[in-house]
Nucleic acid binder design. Structure first.
Lengths: 111, 111
DNA sequence: TTTCGTTATACTTATTTTTAGATAACGTAT
DNA sequence: ATACGTTATCTAAAAATAAGTATAACGAAA
C-alpha cells in the first residue's frame, strides 16, 4: 500500500497546469521539438499539442516558442515564463512529496 | 488561479481508496443506506455499489455492514475499520491541504 | 402470505474522455 | 521547384466511465 498524490493549478474549474504539461515541457526543453517529445513520451503529437495549447490558453501566456520550416523543419523552445513555471512546479512537488510521505506514515503507516 | 490536489491509496498500481469512496462512505454514515447516499450524490446505485465493492476487495476488509429485509428494507452502516479509515483520510487531507496552501503561496503566489 | 425498500449482481446502453490519423502551412537548403 | 521535418488543426475512432435496467434475496410487519 502506498500514497499517490497529484497537484495542479485550476482556474474556473478548468485544469490549467499539472504533471502532464510539466513532464511534456521538460522533454521539449531537452529534445528541442514537441514532435520528438511526444514520441519519447509515447503519446501522439496531437495530444501533446493539445496539452500545451490548453495550458497556454488558460494561463494567458505562451509556454513554448515555435518555429516552422527550415532544413531541420523547425522546433520549439521554452519561453522564460515556461521555464519559470516548470521550475516552480517541480520545487513545489518536491517539498510537497517530502511532507506527504511523513504524513502518510503518520496516518497510514500500519496498513 | 488556485491549487487543487488529490490523494489516494494504491496497491499494485490499482486505486484502493480516495476521495470518491470517502465522500460516499460519509454519506452512507449520515443517511443509513447506500441507496439514499447514491441518490444524494447524484450517482447511480450500481456505481455507488461498485465503488464500495472495489475498495473493500482491495483493502481486504469490509467498509460497511449491510442488512436487508425488515419493514424499512434494510440499510448499511460503517464498520469500525471503515470509520477509522475515513477519519484518517480526512485528517490526512486536512493537514495536507493546510500545508499545500502555504506551499502554493510560496511558489505560485504571484499568478 | 403479501408488501416494502433495501442490498447484490449482471448486463446493456449512453455518455464522456482519450487517442490516433489525416492534411496543410512553413521555410531553408539543395 | 523540391524535399524535409517541423507546427497547427480538424475529424473520426476507440476506450474508459457512468448510467440504466432487470432480477433475486432478504426479513419484519400488516
Amino acid at each position: 500500500m502506498k500514497l499517490e498524490s497529484r497537484f495542479w493549478l485550476e482556474q474556473g474549474g478548468e485544469k490549467v497546469f499539472g504533471k502532464g504539461p510539466c513532464v511534456l515541457l521538460e522533454t521539449v526543453d531537452r529534445l528541442g521539438t514537441l514532435n520528438k517529445a511526444a514520441a519519447e513520451l509515447g503519446m501522439s503529437y496531437s495530444k501533446a499539442w493539445s496539452i500545451i495549447k490548453r495550458a497556454e490558453k488558460q494561463l494567458g501566456f505562451l509556454l513554448m516558442e515555435r518555429t516552422t520550416g527550415g532544413v531541420d523543419g523547425g522546433g520549439s523552445s521554452l519561453t522564460p515564463e515556461g521555464k519559470q513555471l516548470i521550475k516552480n512546479y517541480r520545487l513545489f512537488c518536491e517539498e510537497a512529496d517530502a511532507f506527504l510521505d511523513e504524513l502518510y506514515k503518520k496516518y497510514f503507516g500500519d496498513i
